[in-house]
């Protein structure tokens, strides 16, 4: 009973998502909304603005460096939490 309910729920959610997927911007189309002035700026100006060739590296350490700081904090939190749990 419970399993049937779950399967039905999953199928309903899956069908909804598939329907949504039909409507989404086409996969790999250069005219999609994501390829807007932001990504163009990154692609065109990264070398002059940051002096590096890998745009992804420029984004993670320069344009969005604060995210990376958050990420280092996540690692630190994981360690502190793990040690607190394992040593208690």
């Amino acid at each position: 009973m419970r399993i049937a309910l779950e399967v039905v729920t999953l199928i309903v959610i899956g069908a909804l998502l598939l329907m949504v997927a039909q409507e989404m911007p086409a996969f790999g189309d250069p005219a999609n909304p994501v390829h807007n002035e932001v990504s163009e700026f990154y692609l065109e100006n990264t070398q002059e603005e940051t002096g590096v060739q890998n745009v992804v590296a420029a984004i993670i350490t320069d344009y969005r460096g604060f995210d990376t700081l958050g990420e280092l904090t996540v690692l630190l939190t994981a360690i502190a939490g793990l040690l607190a749990v394992l040593r208690s």
Binding site: Q47, G51, V52, A57, D62, T68
Partner: peptide
């Protein structure tokens, strides 16, 4: 910023990458 393509280019980026 240095010369693009060298190891020590990109200002703080190298330092940040090493610390990461």
């Amino acid at each position: 910023l240095g010369i693009p393509g060298r190891v020590f280019s990109g200002g703080t980026i190298v330092l940040l990458t090493v610390s990461i």
